[in-house]
């Protein structure tokens, strides 16, 4: 039977689906019987899930203009 400490060490590979099937099964058996580890894994995974939503898709329009004009100026310089 895995201990909670073992689960902590396998956690990252578990959430990334990198564990061998037999180890994964032993970990699942532990989780079925251990609310502490289950809550820990669920909140670890949830932290990753909500981080994805922070991705910056567009930059502000004034910054877009500033960037393009910076590059244009640089390219226009004689040593560019």
């Amino acid at each position: 039977m895995l201990t909670c400490r073992d689960v902590g060490q396998l956690l990252q590979d578990y959430v990334e689906g990198a564990l061998e099937a037999p180890v994964r099964q032993r970990l699942d058996e532990h989780l079925a019987d251990c609310p502490g580890c289950l809550a820990f894994i669920k909140t670890y995974k949830h932290t990753i899930a909500i981080s994805k939503d922070l991705r910056c898709k567009d930059i502000p329009p004034e910054l877009q203009r500033k960037l393009r004009s910076f590059i244009k100026d640089k390219l226009g310089q004689p040593d560019a």
Partner: peptide
């Protein structure tokens, strides 16, 4: 260290404190 960022453990490697599920 990683161990300090997780729940406290007993000497035999069991979680020693309640863990909140806020998912």
């Amino acid at each position: 260290l990683a161990e300090e960022l997780g729940p406290a453990m007993t000497e035999d490697g069991r979680i020693a404190e309640p863990v909140m599920d806020w998912t």
